[in-house]
């Protein structure tokens, strides 16, 4: 009798662990590990974090793997791992940092270019667009308003 209970308990516990792994965490949506690594330089990455998604047309194709600073030109270097079944990006593709929703998490949106050659591991995406920082936007707006006021 006790054996049955112990068996049930261990089975339940293991089932809970599996459910947590499969249903609660992103184990299934993780990239398969095999992928290729590309970098991009940004003037400002805003609140981008490691593991943020990299999306093409809203579909997650990879994850941000590293964020560092280029010590020569003081720009942020974002390294991302893109799944190998998406090795379709033309070499002149561009990367931009967007925010999902007004206050949501930030992610990298890729937009494909037109070249025939595709991005390979270690390549650098040349065309980038920085994150929109709300404070800069507001101060620019106020500045413009003030300038308009001066003209009148």
């Amino acid at each position: 009798m006790r054996d049955i209970w112990v068996g049930l308990f261990v089975a339940l516990g293991l089932l809970a662990l599996t459910l947590l792994a499969l249903h609660v965490s992103n184990l299934l949506s993780l990239p398969s590990g095999k992928g290729y690594f590309v970098t991009a330089e940004f003037d400002n990455i805003g609140g981008l974090k490691v593991r943020a998604p990299v999306k093409l047309s809203g579909v997650v194709v990879g994850r941000v793997e590293s964020i560092s600073i280029d010590s020569k030109n003081f720009r942020a270097v974002v390294g991302m791992n893109i799944e190998s079944n998406y090795s379709i990006f033309p070499i002149d593709s561009s990367a931009a940092i967007y925010t999902s929703g007004l206050l949501g998490e930030q992610y990298i949106g890729l937009s494909p270019g037109a070249e025939d050659a595709v991005l390979k591991s270690g390549d650098r995406i040349a065309l980038t667009q920085s994150a929109i920082v709300l404070e800069t936007l507001i101060s620019q707006f106020l500045f413009n308003k003030a300038a308009e006021g001066d003209k009148k």
Partner: peptide, 19 residues
């Protein structure tokens, strides 16, 4: 509820560390 959980909870970082 579920999709937010799945996108934010990491297997290695959160589940394994909890275990």
């Amino acid at each position: 509820y579920w999709s937010q959980i799945q996108s934010q909870v990491d297997f290695r970082e959160d589940i394994i560390n909890g275990v």
